[in-house]
Structures are given as C-alpha cells and as structure tokens.
Design a protein around this nucleic acid. Structure first.
Lengths: 199, 199
DNA sequence: ATTATCTATAGATCTATAGATAATGC
DNA sequence: ATTATCTATAGATCTATAGATAATGC
C-alpha cells in the first residue's frame, strides 16, 4: 500500500464514495466507522487523518450524494426543455430508483435525518435545493419566471414526498400506485402553462 | 409505585407516548432505552416486560404517532368539504408544525427511516397512507372518484415532501418559501375540478 | 403464584486517540 | 521530518437478560 499524496486523495474519495452510498441505504446512523473503513480496505485508525470527526464525513458524503444526482439531472436536461422535464420525472419516480436508494436522490433517502444534522450539512442542503429548484424551473414552459419557480418547488416537493412514501409502505401495489400517479400528474402539470383553472 | 394491571397499562401508554414524540424529534436511532425509561420515571430493566424488543416499541410508537396526527385530520375534516382541505393544508404546511416534529406528522419526520424498518412497522404505514389518501380524496370536489384519489396522492406526497425539505434546509427564507409556495399551489389544486388545462 | 419494577451486568457495539510502522518528500 | 496507515484500547454507549424485591390477585 502506498502513502503518496495522490494515494491519499484516492483513498479519501473512496471513503466518501462508499459512505455516500451506505448513508443513503442505511441512514446516517446506520453503520460505524470501523465497518466503513473495512469496506474501503482500511482499518479504523486511519479515519481521523481524513476527517476531523464523523460529522465531517456526514457533511462531505451527503454533499457527494447531491453531486451524483445533480449529474443525472444535468444529463436529463441536455435533451432540451419540456421533453426533458417529463424524462426527469420518469427518471425519478420509478421502481429502479425506489429499490436502489444508494445510488439515488439524497433528499428522498435522508431529508429528515439531514434536518437533525449540523449546520454545515444543512447549509450544503440549502444550496442543493436552490440549485435543483432552479434547474426544474428552467425546464418549465411559460415566460413568468416567478410562476415557474413556484411550480418547480411544488414539483420538487412532490417528487421527494412520493419517493419517500413509496419506499415506506410495504404494500407493493400501493407503492407502485404512488409512483405512477404522481409521475403522471406532475407530467401534466409540467406541460401546461397554468397550474390550475380558476374556478 | 403501584403494580396493578391498570397501572401497567398506564405505564405502557406513557412509554409509547414519550417514544412516539422523541422518535419524531430525534429519529428512530436517536436515543436508547435507558434514556427513554428515565424520562418515563422508570429504569431500563422494566422495559422488556412491556416490549419484546426495541423494534416492537418502534412499531407501536410509530403507529401511535400516526394516530395522533389522524385525530388532527379528523378535526379538520369536521368543518365540511373543500373549505376543510384548505384548512388541512394550512394546518400542515406552517412553521409551527415545521418546528415541532415531536407532535407532528410521522411521515415527514420519519419516512426514510420507516422504509428501513421491519415489516410490521411498514405494514402499519401502508394502512395509514391508505387512510390519509382516502381522507384527502373525500375532501376534494368533483364526482370522479378515481381522479380524486389520484389528486389526493399528489397532494399527500407534496405535503410530506415540502415539510421534509423545509426542515432540511438551514436557510430560513428558503424554508418559508417552500412552505408558503406549496401550500398556495395545493390549495388552488384542491379547489378546482380539473388538475390542469389541456394544452 | 405471579409479575412489574429495580439493580447490576454481560457482551457488543461506537467514536476517538495513542503509539508503532513504513512510506513519502524535502 | 512528515505523515498515512496500522494495532490496540480507553471510555462511553447500547440492547438484552439475570436475579432480587415488593406488590397484586387468585
């Protein structure tokens, strides 16, 4: 095993990458440092040369999870507006994403635990929410930017809530119904100029 | 201290009530049995005469949390349809609820952790989701029951997602924006016959 | 006789640190 | 000289159980 700076950087990234995945799968309290380091092929003692504390790892790993999902959004975006928002919704609200939280969206996997985390983690979360809302807003039709932002916030909330619920229920049919229903209604919402008819 | 059956029932309920609140505040792994029993004025040894395991407590306490919120929904419902759905939305998406998860909705406080819990907890969750969707559907206008159910699922998802996100971000203005925006759009959605204009 | 509760503790964690080792990098 | 990693461990948890005590309830 090597000890160069380049090697340390690689090791650091490997630890964060594994933690990022496992946190989404098992929760922020789902495993210990020894277990994590073992999966990275290391031992527990080396951990604190990479991170000041476990909370430091949480902040970095959650942020890394945001980044991974962000890249997927950016890919979806490259298809052009309107069409790609429908694609983004389908890319989010499906059974593959539901059954693989480790490679999925960190909000639907961790939002309530992030809410109980330290300031740094929640600051990074604020930035990511802003960025995701912004991205969805640009994919919405219509010239009214404020209205687009509002709708983007609704769509983002519904995506996160639907995935959280679809994972929490044990009834497979109900879980699928949640995913399909919300995907369909959001796609309608995304493709129209106004949110609702006035009464 | 007494040892009668009536006393044991009271003690049992007290433990569940405290756990139900603290789980929503601190997460399902947020405290130990010793700490819980101490808050109930008891010691750790007595716990296992009430529950077979910690997971048994989780199932019972999460279900109790559902019950508490259900009662609040039923109260909101007593105002009559349409008006009361707007009231329900405002009752959910506000800063008091955001800042007091211990007495609030168990889904927005715990959904991802419930997803990682045992079968029993998730079965109870399925029932509760069904019941909440049903309740929201009855408050929606229109004769088409299937359309009402679909919209109810969207509204429920958006409520849970918006609260989860509003709690996760550290930026107070962004948090408020999420709550207000989603509340407003959902109330529009709830008061109209059709979800969207056709293009 | 049964049992709700208590004290005490076994055994398994978990975070963090100390000190040794072996490599890098000046 | 510095440091990335290792082994080992301190000290604080945590779940669950054993056995004693004191009350209920037949």
């Amino acid at each position: 095993m090597g000890y160069s700076k380049a090697q340390k950087t690689r090791t650091h990234k490997r630890i964060v990458s594994i933690a990022s995945k496992r946190f989404r799968e098992k929760g922020l309290a789902g495993f210990g440092i020894a277990e994590l380091m073992k999966e990275a092929g290391l031992t527990v003692g080396g951990f604190y040369k990479h991170f000041g504390s476990r909370d430091d790892l949480v902040a970095e790993a959650v942020n890394s999870a945001f980044g991974g999902w962000q890249r997927r959004l950016d890919v979806a975006k490259s298809g052009g507006p309107s069409v790609s928002l429908a694609k983004l919704i389908d890319d989010y609200l499906n059974e593959t994403h539901r059954d693989n939280p480790g490679s999925g969206c960190a909000f639907s996997a961790l939002a309530p635990e992030i809410a109980r985390s330290d300031k740094r983690t929640r600051s990074l979360t604020s930035e990511q929410v802003r960025s995701d809302v912004q991205l969805i807003a640009t994919l919405l039709p219509g010239r009214d930017k404020r209205a687009a932002r509002s709708r983007a916030i609704l769509i983002f909330s519904a995506l996160v809530g639907a995935m959280s619920l679809a994972r929490a229920v044990s009834d497979e049919a109900l879980s699928r119904e949640i995913l399909k229903t919300v995907a369909e209604l959001l796609k309608n919402l995304a493709s129209t100029q106004r949110v609702v008819n006035s009464p």
